[in-house]
Design a protein around this nucleic acid. Structure first.
Lengths: 235, 235
DNA sequence: CGTTCCTTTGAACATAGTCAATAAACGTGG
DNA sequence: CCACGTTTATTGACTATGTTCAAAGGAACG
C-alpha cells in the first residue's frame, strides 16, 4: 500500500488496524460500515443517557465529547473523542451509563461490526480501545488535579497529537484542532478567557502556531519535559 | 441470614453479591480467598506499573489508591479504593497499565476467583465492577474540573459513603475515613492546608462531624443538592 | 450584509497556594 | 504502660493563579 492510499484510508480502519491484527474480512466489515453512516450536526447529542447500545458506535469523522452538565450551567467535558474512536463500548452488561456524548463539530458515526468469536481481531481491538480510553481518563484526572493552566494545555495538545496520529490524522508537528476555546476550557477545567491568554502565551513564546483550525506544536519536546509526558499507545 | 451475620460478612462478598446474583459455589470461592490473603503495610505499593495480573485482585480490607507521581514531587490520587473493590480488572489483553496502586492504610489483598464460564455470576460482577469504576473516574474528572474546594469535598464524601455502604461498611450517616488530609488533598487536587480549612468550615457549620477516623455526614441532603449528586449504583 | 459565534482585552476580584511555625495525635520501642 | 520521635492537624500572613464582568473586534455563515 502506498502513501496515497494510506492517507485515504478511513480513520477508524487506520486506528483499529493499528491496535490489533485484523483479518481481511474484518477490514472489509469496517469498510462496509460507512454505508450505514449517520451525520450529526455540531452541538447535537450523539448518545444520551440511557441507551443500552448493543453494538459499539464508531466515530468516523469529526470531533465529539462525553459531557457532564451541572444545573447552574457549568459544563465539564469528561473525554474528547476524535475520528476513529469508539463511543461507548457496550461492554457493560447493564446500561449503567449516565453521560451524554455530544458532537463538537459536524460528525459522522456508524455502528461498528460486532467483536465476537467470528471477529476475534475486532474483539481484541475493541478491548484495547477500551483500555486506552481508561488510561486517557486517568490522564485527564492527573491533568485536572495537579497541572497548572499552561501545563494542562500542553499535556492535552500532546495527547491529541498522538491520538490523531494513531488515526492517521496528524502530520509530523501539525494537526487539526477544530475546537473553540470554550470547548478547550470545558475540557481543561478553565475559563475560555484563561485558555485564550494561555494560548497567546504559547504563541508569543513560539511554542505553538495556529492557522485556522490547524495547530503546529513547535516545542513539543519542551512540553513533554514540562508535563512528564508518556505516550499512551506504543507499537 | 440475620443482621449479625450480615455485619460479619466480608466486604468483598458483600459487595460482589450486591452487584450480581452469585451461586453458592461462587460465594464459597470468594470466602476461600481469604486463605490466600496477603498483608501490605501502609505506604507500600500493592501493584506496580507493568504487572499483567491474570486474575483480578480483591481488596479485602483497608484503603488503597491508584496514583500518579510527577517528577517534581506532585502527586495525584487518580482513584480511591475501598475494601471490597477490585484492583486492576485484568480485562485488558495487554498490560497497558501505567499506574501504581499504593496502600493508604494497612491492607489485605487476595487474588479473586476467575470469572469464567464456570463462574458466570462472578464474571458479571467483575464486569459491573469495572463499569462502576469507569463511572467513578468520570465523576472524578467532573469533580476536579468544575467544582470548588467545598463542593469537591462534599461530592467525595457522598461517593465514599455510598461505596462503603455497598460493601457493608457505612452506617446510616457515619462511615470510617482513615485518610490523612494530605491524601484527601491529593485526591481532590488541593493542598492539605486548604482541605484542612474546608473541613473546618464544614464542621463549623454543623454539616459534618469527625471523631477519630469516623465521619458523620449531617447535612448529606444539602451536599447532594449542592453538587447535583447522583448515585452511581442503584438496586 | 446582517447576525451570530468566537476571540481578544482590561480591570477588579476570589479562590486556593505557599511558607513557616506550633500543637496535637499516633506509633514504637523499651 | 510510658517516653520519645514522627506524622498529622492547625493557624496566620502573604502570594499567585485563575475568574468575573464587560466590552470591542473579527470571522464565519446563511
Amino acid at each position: 500500500m502506498n502513501i496515497a492510499q494510506q492517507r485515504l484510508q478511513p480513520s477508524h480502519i487506520k486506528r483499529l488496524t493499528a491496535l490489533a491484527r485484523l483479518s481481511s474480512g474484518e477490514i472489509e466489515a469496517l469498510a462496509a460500515v460507512e454505508a450505514a453512516a449517520v451525520s450529526v450536526r455540531a452541538r447535537r447529542e450523539i448518545v444520551e443517557e440511557g441507551v443500552p447500545a448493543r453494538q459499539p458506535l464508531l466515530l468516523l469523522s469529526g470531533w465529539a465529547a462525553r459531557v457532564r452538565h451541572f444545573p447552574d450551567g457549568r459544563r465539564q467535558i469528561l473525554h474528547l473523542l476524535v475520528a476513529g474512536d469508539l463511543i461507548g463500548l457496550a461492554s457493560h452488561p447493564d446500561p449503567v451509563e449516565p453521560t451524554t456524548v455530544v458532537a463538537l463539530t459536524n460528525v459522522t458515526v456508524a455502528p461498528g461490526p460486532r467483536g465476537d468469536e467470528a471477529n476475534p481481531g475486532l474483539a481484541e481491538a475493541y478491548r484495547l480501545s477500551a483500555a486506552i480510553e481508561r488510561i486517557h481518563l486517568l490522564r485527564q484526572v492527573a491533568r485536572l488535579g495537579r497541572l497548572g493552566a499552561y501545563e494542562r494545555l500542553a499535556d492535552l495538545l500532546l495527547h491529541l497529537r498522538d491520538r490523531l496520529r494513531l488515526a492517521g490524522l496528524a502530520g509530523e508537528t501539525s494537526f487539526p484542532l477544530p475546537l473553540t476555546q470554550e470547548v478547550l476550557a470545558d475540557t481543561l477545567g478553565l475559563t475560555s478567557v484563561h485558555v485564550n491568554r494561555t494560548l497567546q502565551a504559547m504563541r508569543r513564546e513560539g511554542a505553538i502556531e495556529m492557522h485556522g483550525s490547524m495547530v503546529r506544536l513547535i516545542e513539543a519536546d519542551r512540553f513533554e519535559a514540562l508535563v512528564d509526558y508518556q505516550p499512551v499507545w506504543r507499537r
